[in-house]
Nucleic acid binder design. Structure first.
Length: 687
DNA sequence: ATCCTGCAATTTTTT
DNA sequence: ATTGCAGGAT
């Protein structure tokens, strides 16, 4: 057993709080993870609370895993039975046991947003509504936000009378039954179904209330109404609810999170103990002065002031640069210098940006300088086509009613079953009130289908029967191997050529990952929550790019999300004495206040201003995301190879370049910069 | 009817 | 980069 974590008085107060409502106001870098970890360990060792009677919510699965490991280190043994995870994964786990009471099988599928949007699209089409006028994505967005606010379809429809809302309410009303028919739940349902269960089955609520003696929530400022209600329910009897958050760091307002929960908590739970963690262990006083200056702009906050023992420190540099490449090069240069001077290691450096698209210039600059970096949260492994295909097979084995999985799998590999045939099958399934897979099994009795399609469909049904038989209770890696062997999926990929080989690599990686998962995973098995494949699928559905391991050491690149939508305001809030202004181009000076900048009244401030060109020659409102290109410049395309920019047109997101590629077979191509993924051609430049 | 090719449109942020 | 769609070949 490792010695207990050292704690400062405020941290200790939070950790040792004996019970009852506890609100921990934790500033950035104040050791809140340490407090949560230590508190859970304290509950188990000092208060003798059994791990399985603790319900702890973290913001990501990765955080849950790390916290679990650290608790294990403190205890000297894995906290077996501890419920720790995101709201979604904990809810899914609870629902696996309660699904039958809600009219679902415990083998229900979790639909991701692609699945949900595809289902919405089919529901729109069934209503003869144009998916051009009502994009499934928008419609689903409206429905999802209604769910997050816990509105019924009727309540949504009564809200506003715009056509989109009306259509969304209409589709929303059909969505619930469709999901139930498919034995599927979407992300929002994972939060809502437990509430329905508690409402309709008070005895189950009583069970879970008794089961969990302590409830803890991290990143409380980012909880939405349904999430808060869930933990309120669980903790209502004993009041042992510990929430940790920072009202100055709320970032998920756009997805229904409500910071005001921080403010209402003390009213909701009278007698709440409030602990402020104000000592920061990460940054120098100068950095904190900058942060405090910005935070002070927030209104309606509980209020806290960060302090640190690290006095002084280097000032914050406010850099203005010509464009994002220029900026990236400056950063790469600066990082390389600091690493060479021994000021800091690459592992201790990070770049935050607003959108993932902005990582590209940084990656280029870092690669050019040979600086190691790791990219967090760009594209998920699980979003790859080949991975989704195989998981869809697995889903369909686990849950034969999963229509979205069926539609993904039915013609992969090619079986000569196209949209027209699927439309016919869909009508038959609807008439029979059966899942598509079941309808496929009876394709022989659908007269509108051509003989070869009938054969194809009943072949798919038979294939799935065989797979289900063969997979049985096997672990996910074995199940995946079985699917691969039975469908010749790898051959199908190999036939796609060079791209296919890369996909085969990913397939192997998926199988290896599934095997590794099975090794680690056994804590939940004791509770008997479904087959290994079902548990694997739950986990796979809820994994996010940030959860995925990137073992590469180096500078960390990741997004900073929203709070910076209006950068100018915040820049102006920086206390001037802690800021050093610099520019990549000596000839041009950026300004926060008065000074060398000519008085242009309409000049945008903040980030936009920082990106203004050093001289004339470029339009003022260029995209913040896309790199800029110049005629005559050499570029490199992943597929087409090297070439020369001949013309540039459009602006912002529509910025297009005309490129003469070196390969005469390719010739000149028009490319949309934002998506083409062009890079500067370093090799060609010198030559 | 299905498959193939080439072109257009699409991305904030996450479960 | 990837997906969706239109138009043509099979």
């Amino acid at each position: 057993m490792t010695p207990p974590l050292p704690l400062n008085p405020a941290q200790r107060e939070a950790v040792e709080h004996p019970g009852g409502p506890l609100l921990v106001l934790a500033g950035a870098g104040s050791g809140k993870t340490r407090v949560l970890t230590a508190r859970i360990a304290h509950l188990i060792t000092a208060l003798h609370v059994a791990p399985q009677r603790i319900f702890a919510v973290t913001f990501t699965n990765k955080a849950a895993g790390e916290m679990r490991t650290r608790i294990g280190q403190l205890l000297g043994a894995d906290p077996r039975g501890l419920w720790i995870g995101t709201f979604h994964s904990l809810s899914a786990r609870l629902l696996r046991r309660e699904a039958p009471l809600l009219g679902f099988g415990s083998n229900f599928t979790i639909y991701d947003s692609d699945d949900s949007e595809a289902l919405v699209k089919r529901l729109l089409e069934a209503r003869q509504l144009s998916t051009k006028v009502y994009p499934p994505r928008s419609v689903h967005g409206v429905i999802s936000s209604a769910k997050n606010r816990m509105l019924t379809p009727e309540e949504l429809g009564a809200q506003l009378d715009t056509p989109l809302i009306k259509v969304a309410a209409d589709v929303y009303a059909a969505l619930g039954p469709a999901l139930k028919q498919a034995n599927a739940m979407d992300f929002d349902d994972l939060l809502l179904h437990p509430l329905t269960l508690f409402r309709e089955h008070p005895e189950r609520l009583a069970y879970w209330q008794d089961r969990f003696q302590h409830v803890l929530v991290d990143e409380f400022q980012d909880t939405n109404a349904a999430q808060y209600l869930l933990v309120k329910h669980l903790a209502r009897q004993h009041g042992n609810l510990c929430v940790v958050g920072d009202d100055d760091q709320a970032i998920y307002g756009w997805r229904g999170a409500d910071v005001r929960h921080m403010l209402t908590f003390q009213n909701d739970f009278p007698g709440t103990k409030l602990v402020r963690l104000e000592q920061n262990y990460r940054s120098t006083q100068i950095i904190l002065d900058a942060a405090n200056g910005i935070i002070a702009e927030n209104t309606a906050r509980l209020g806290k002031t960060l302090f640190t023992e690290k006095k002084g420190g280097a000032p914050v540099t406010l850099l203005s640069s010509a464009d994002e490449r220029d900026e990236a090069e400056w950063l790469a240069n600066e990082f390389a210098r600091r690493a060479a001077d021994g000021e800091a290691e690459y592992e201790g450096m990070a770049v935050l940006y607003r959108t993932n698209a902005q990582s590209r210039p940084l990656e280029e600059a870092f690669r050019f300088r040979g600086i190691p970096y790791r990219l967090i949260g760009a594209i998920s492994f699980y979003e790859r086509r080949e991975v989704k295909d195989l998981l869809a097979y697995l889903r369909l084995i686990a849950n034969p009613a999963d229509d979205e999985a069926f539609l993904r799998v039915v013609n992969v590999p090619r079986r000569g079953i196209g949209d027209a045939s699927l439309a016919v099958l869909g009508r038959a399934a609807a008439a029979w009130q059966k899942p598509l897979l079941e309808a496929a099994r009876r394709a022989g009795s659908v007269s509108d289908l051509r003989p070869n399609v009938r054969e194809g469909l009943s072949g798919v049904a038979a294939l799935l029967d065989r797979l289900r038989e063969a997979v049985g209770q096997a672990d996910p890696a074995t199940a995946l191997e079985t699917i691969l062997a039975t469908t010749s999926y790898e051959q199908y990929l190999a036939d796609e050529g060079a791209d296919g080989m890369e996909r085969i690599e990913n397939v192997r990686e998926l199988v290896a990952g599934a095997a590794a998962w099975a090794e680690v995973q056994d804590a939940e098995a004791a509770e008997g929550t479904g087959t290994p494949v079902e548990r694997y699928l739950t986990q796979a559905a809820l994994i996010t790019p940030v959860d995925e391991d990137q073992n590469e050491p180096g500078v960390t690149l990741l997004t900073a999300h929203m709070e910076l939508a209006e950068p100018s305001r915040f820049l102006d809030a920086l206390p001037p004495e802690v800021v050093e202004e610099r520019s990549t181009t000596p000839s041009w000076k950026p300004l926060r206040g008065s000074g060398a900048m000519p008085p242009r009244p309409s000049r945008p401030r903040g980030a936009a201003a920082r990106r203004l060109p050093p001289d004339v020659g470029f339009p003022e409102d260029v995209s913040q995301d896309a790199p800029r290109y110049v005629k005559g410049e050499r570029v490199r395309h992943r597929k087409f190879g090297g070439g020369i920019v001949r013309a540039v047109s459009g602006e912002g997101r529509d910025l297009r370049v005309s490129v003469d590629f070196d390969d005469p077979d390719i010739g000149t191509k028009q490319l949309l910069v934002a998506y083409a993924g062009l890079e500067r051609d370093w090799e060609g430049e010198g030559a």
